[in-house]
């Protein structure tokens, strides 16, 4: 047992020595580039010698601005989040990319919509493939967002000070459902037409505002050309802007809240080191954060 521990310690020392050497060599080239006139104009914090410099680099980097400067190691382990938030975001990116491609070949009118989809599948380069990516990403995103919410709940990660980010997250779930539902109608086949007929009929059951909501969505008494146009505009303009805006807010809150010690002093059964002040190797970057709060 002690021999094994000794070997492990030795391997760890070698590994850290290799990592340090690699960082130094990479650091020196990158550092020289950042030190040039052009480099200084791009990177506001050119030297990255101490953890404090690296934190300053994160604060001032546009590309890294949504990331927290500091996170606990256990928060980036797979078992903490199952990476469902990242996966949802990747799926949203895939949906935007494939959706833009499909928009080039689609006109939202009952006369042409179905033929456009057939054209996408048969004539357009990679059309069927891109349509598949869009469809399966959409279904997966509903699952991923719901699973992300369940994971956050079971982890207790919605607790103070992150309550409001949970509320934003519920908003994102509802927006995801609306995105998926409005997109459902666009192929204008039997599946789309009757699924949306059934779905909007359910909206009609809401008292007082139900029938008005249903008529606003449909643009008439039944699913027709007005409905197709409304769903299209919601699907490609209104809802994407809404979902991306709320998502940016959600990520910004994540950046801010990640740096707060939400559960120090609350050791969890799967994480015996979490109690008390974090150990030196527990935190990914350990800058003197107070120095950067303006």
């Amino acid at each position: 047992m002690s021999a094994r521990r000794a070997v492990h310690g030795h391997v760890d020392r070698i590994r850290s020595a290799v990592v340090t050497a690699g960082m130094d060599r990479r650091g020196s080239i990158a550092q020289r580039l950042r030190g040039t006139t052009v480099g200084r104009s791009i990177f506001r914090a050119p030297t990255r010698a101490t953890p404090r410099d690296r934190a300053a680099g994160h604060w001032s980097s546009f590309l890294l601005h949504i990331y927290p400067v500091k996170m606990r190691r256990k928060e980036i382990a797979f078992r903490y989040s199952w990476y469902l938030g990242v996966i949802s975001t990747v799926l949203l990116g895939s949906l935007i990319a494939s959706g833009i491609y499909l928009m080039f070949f689609y006109v939202p009118s009952p006369e042409s919509a179905y033929a456009d989809i057939q054209n996408i599948q048969l004539e357009v380069t990679f059309g069927q493939y891109i349509r598949n990516v869009h469809r399966w990403s959409a279904h997966l995103m509903v699952l991923a967002v719901a699973a992300h919410m369940a994971r956050v709940f079971y982890r207790g990660a919605y607790k103070a000070p992150r309550e409001f980010n949970w509320v934003l997250g519920v908003g994102l779930l509802l927006l995801t459902l609306l995105m998926s539902f409005t997109g459902y109608l666009l192929p204008w086949d039997q599946l789309a037409f009757w699924a949306v007929t059934v779905g909007t009929e359910m909206a009609g059951y809401v008292p007082f505002i139900g029938e008005t909501t249903q008529e606003m969505l449909l643009g008439g008494p039944v699913v027709g050309s007005a409905t197709l146009l409304r769903f299209y505009v919601l699907h490609v303009a209104v809802l994407p802007v809404a979902i991306v805006s709320v998502l940016m807010f959600h990520l910004w809150r994540w950046r801010k809240d990640s740096m707060l010690d939400t559960d120090s002093g609350e050791p969890t059964s799967d994480d015996p080191v979490a109690g008390g002040p974090p150990a030196a190797d527990e935190v990914v970057i350990e800058p003197e954060l107070e120095e950067f709060h303006v």
Partner: peptide, 20 residues
């Protein structure tokens, strides 16, 4: 492949009709 059924037909309700 993503499904694509026949063209939407107002007069022909599929049985069963299901929401997403």
């Amino acid at each position: 492949n993503a499904p694509l059924l026949e063209l939407a037909n107002f007069n022909q309700t599929p049985n069963p009709s299901k929401a997403p």
